[in-house]
Amino acid sequence: MSAKAPTLLAPDRDGIVKAARLLADGGLVALPSETVYGLAADARNDRAVARIYEAKGRPSFNPLIVHVADMAAVERIAEMPGAARRLAAAFWPGPMTLVLPLRATAGLSPLVTAGLPTVALRLPAHPVMRAVLAAFGGPVAAPSANPSGRISATRAEHVIAGLGAQVDAVLDAGPCAVGVESTILAPAPGGLRLLREGGLTREAITNVAGPVQEDVTPGKVEAPGQLSSHYAPEVAVRLGGAAQPGDITVGFGPGAADLTLSETGDLVEAATRLFDVLHAADRLAADRQARAIRVSDIPDEGLGRAINDRLRRAAAPR
């Protein structure tokens, strides 16, 4: 574990090379993706992966997403049924994760898969993260770069505030464009299962692959983001309804509020701003000694499904 604050790296050639070198040495590096910042480590290194769980305070039964640079790396790690290939062709690189059968020769740390016979894989689209993956030359485990169960990080300053000296370096490429984690899908003989709502909308998926079976909070966790309580600020989150005296209010669309996800009611903007606004609301609640954050209703369509999924988990009993 680092004994000092993390090194801040620039999103240039020098920063990319330094990030890759730290990963090769077993370090933890917060990397930008189009979704959120990820807490990255060499997915083949038991000690490095264990440091992810330790830094986040993440339960060991909650598997990690492995990020790779190209389809050749996917093929080395997992089996690819036909449905998975169609989804990959349509949506990779991008905010989609596929849960696939793990190859016996994959070479990943068993901590990555939490003992499951499957592995969650993604090809990110962010050019800086792709450059780090190419320079590193191997698979990287990278859950969201925040304490487990707390608000995800969409800016470098969120990472530093949440994890601080537990991270060796943060590669700062500015705010994340999508703002919510990847959509997680599991192709299976019985049909396509949706394990987590995310930055790829259900409508886009069904246009390519047909209907999906929702399985976002199963009895047994088989993918990240399925715990009932997650993404939570320090204070309670309340969804919809009338604000109570002293509540910190988060609006959507026209209307007075302390903070807003989108003044125009734009779901893309709201998704991009979601975690940034929740961080700001949490700070404001601490300043005002407020007991709750009240969030306006969000339409449950398109990216609104992913936003509502995160808000419901943030509001769940802890």
Rank of each mutant, 00 (worst) to 15 (best):
A120G: 08
H279R: 02
H67P: 04
A161Q: 04
D300G: 08
A236C: 09
T154S: 15
A135K: 00
M129F: 11
F275D: 00
H279M: 12
V140E: 10
A125M: 09
V178F: 07
A48S: 07
D12R: 02
L311P: 01
S152F: 12
A89M: 05
P233N: 01
A188C: 06
A223D: 01
T118C: 10
L195G: 05
Q213F: 11
G107E: 08
D172I: 00
A292S: 05
V128R: 06
V237D: 03
L39R: 07
T217W: 10
I205H: 02
R238D: 09
L22G: 00
V250K: 00
I184W: 00
A135T: 01
P32V: 02
A131C: 07
A236S: 14
I248F: 12
S33Y: 09
P59N: 14
S109M: 06
V132F: 13
A243R: 06
D168K: 04
A41F: 10
T105A: 15
D215N: 05
P299V: 11
D168F: 12
A3H: 14
P63C: 08
H279K: 03
P245C: 08
H126R: 07
L278M: 10
V212Q: 11
N62Y: 13
N308S: 11
G82Y: 09
P143T: 02
G149R: 06
A281Q: 02
V170N: 09
A20C: 07
D247L: 07
A30W: 10
P110K: 04
L23I: 01
N45D: 15
V68K: 01
D266W: 13
V208R: 08
G137Q: 03
D215R: 06
L31D: 09
V208T: 12
R47L: 14
G198M: 00
V66W: 06
A257R: 09
A125Q: 13
L192N: 05
R310M: 11
N146K: 10
D215A: 02
V112I: 11
D25I: 01
T105I: 05
S182I: 02
R202L: 08
G107C: 13
E75D: 14
V167C: 00
R193P: 01
D215S: 01
A306V: 02
G210C: 07
L267M: 09
I151G: 03
A257N: 09
L311T: 00
A43E: 13
V216M: 03
F275E: 03
T206F: 03
T206V: 06
D282P: 04
R283C: 12
L192M: 06
L123Q: 15
D276K: 01
D42Q: 01
S109I: 07
A290H: 05
A43S: 11
E79K: 12
G164V: 03
E222R: 07
V74Y: 10
R47E: 15
E75S: 14
A145Q: 00
R305M: 15
E181R: 03
Q213Y: 08
I16Q: 02
G251F: 04
A186L: 00
I307C: 03
T105H: 11
L274D: 02
A286E: 14
I307V: 14
A306H: 03
I65M: 06
T206L: 08
L227P: 00
E34S: 12
A120Y: 05
G198E: 00
G246V: 13
L108E: 07
A271N: 05
Q166L: 15
